[in-house]
Design a binder for these strands. Sequence first.
DNA 1: GGCTGGTGTCAGCCTCGGGTGATGTGACAG
DNA 2: CTGTCACATCACCCGAGGCTGACACCAGCC
Lengths: 114, 114
Amino acid sequence: MMMSAKTEVTPVPPDGAELIRVLADPLRFEVVTLLARETLCTTHLVEETGARQTNLSNHLRVLREAGVVDTEPCGRFTYYRLRPEVLTSLAGAFAELAETARETAATDRKRPCP
Amino acid sequence: MMMSAKTEVTPVPPDGAELIRVLADPLRFEVVTLLARETLCTTHLVEETGARQTNLSNHLRVLREAGVVDTEPCGRFTYYRLRPEVLTSLAGAFAELAETARETAATDRKRPCP
DNA sequence: GGCTGGTGTCAGCCTCGGGTGATGTGACAG
DNA sequence: CTGTCACATCACCCGAGGCTGACACCAGCC
């Protein structure tokens, strides 16, 4: 069958808990921070983070499978681009949780001791 | 010598990366979700999550040391209350990161291949 | 063609951290 | 005072996952 140039648009299963787990790793979070400011390829990330290429490639796969980043091949290089929507939804989830917590604190809602 | 029974207002070292790591654990995140809706004590959390008391106590210590929750002793019980500010700041951080990423994507800002 | 440089994949090592059981302590009930 | 309950702390086990080295792959350059 033909493959065409599908970039495999990534189905992006937006699992909240899984997403947090992915972002919890220090190196992955550093990569995300760097990619937020600039679209980079693996070589740049190696320079910036000081991590081994193999190590970074593994982490980038995790980020890719989690739908956090998109890849854009450019000759021998591979550009990594961050997906803002993912971070936005995460921020929204935390904001909503914080709002609920603030209401709970304001009305002093607590379950009685049994 | 020591001054009164201060509840030890928790210095709260607001380390972003550390905070994410703390919230990345499924059980801890479930606890945070539950505490957002209602102030509970350990017994309630044991009932709700189905986890062992020891296990929960350990996780609650992590949440306490990270400044995510506050404790309020009530007789033999200990109430756990969520700190909305922590979640708010985290949400803000992610929103800011998302904003930066959106700008980067909009202006197609990328570092050239060396 | 062969060679080099940029990346992904695989298999293994090894540490970190979550789960558990035993045990201690303080607070009520009797 | 003694028992029980709520909760914390400790010591230990063990598996998930991060890191690495060896290798495969592909795209340009000679």
